[in-house]
Simulated assay, not measured.
Amino acid sequence: MGPKQAIFTSLAEIARAMGHAHRLELLEHLAQGERSVDELAARASLTFANASRHLQILRRASLVETRREGKRVFYSLAGENETVGLLRALASVGERNMAEVEQVMRTYFRSRDTMEPISRAELVARLRDDLVTVLDVRPEDEFRLGHLPRALNIPLSELERRLTEIAPGREVVAYCRGPFCILSFEAVALLRTRGYSVHRLEDGYPEWKAAGLPVEVVTDG
């Protein structure tokens, strides 16, 4: 086998490891931060054994890495920035080339947010001038692992009853796990019906972090 063929064989192994919907979802969850197998299984609605099997396939392709704490095994992304970039590229190619992806984007996502999302560069500028409220609608435990600067965390499931925490008359930029995460789309749709001026960030927390932009974490104590 020549050097080019050896490289292509290794790349094909990575492609095969990513070639399952459950494994892509597990990678999306790991892009928010380190997780145990049981946490990942619950988030992806998988059995412990099934989640563990998918994670082991991802590990063999060096897409994830592990650490052990007692009897619990924790997973995290390996080469975090590169893996997040690979997932984003896959999403872009899918949206461009696959009719099924375009159909879902048109009938579900764009029906909830017909306006152009705000770019990372735009949000950086507005944060610098203190012009927006940044709203993180992911679950609290994901927010604690890392979030955008000065972000307000209101999980989508709590948003309607906590609207008073969002300053009236101030522009809101909502974000969640990534470009196909439904949480921010649903938050934008809800807030607009309540009269808020709200935009969605073009992607999510993992892409913001991978771009080298500042993030904050919640530390106990």
Results as ranks from 00 to 15, higher is better:
M1H: 07
K4N: 08
A6G: 11
F8R: 15
S10I: 13
L11Y: 15
A12Q: 15
A12S: 14
A12K: 15
A12R: 15
E13L: 14
E25C: 15
L27W: 11
E28M: 14
Q32R: 06
Q32F: 01
G33P: 03
R35S: 03
R35Q: 03
R43D: 06
A51R: 00
S52G: 02
L55I: 07
I57C: 07
S62F: 12
E65G: 07
F74I: 02
F74Q: 01
A89C: 12
S92K: 05
G94Y: 02
G94L: 06
E102K: 13
Q103T: 11
S111V: 03
S111C: 04
R120F: 09
V124S: 04
V124Q: 06
A125R: 06
R126Q: 04
L127V: 02
D129C: 02
D129V: 04
T133V: 15
L135H: 14
L135S: 15
R138G: 11
R138E: 10
E142T: 00
H147R: 00
L148N: 00
P149L: 04
L152M: 14
N153Y: 10
L159C: 15
E165A: 13
I166V: 10
A167E: 14
V173M: 11
C176P: 11
R177G: 12
E186M: 07
V188A: 01
A210K: 08
A211F: 04
A211G: 03
V215R: 01
D220V: 13
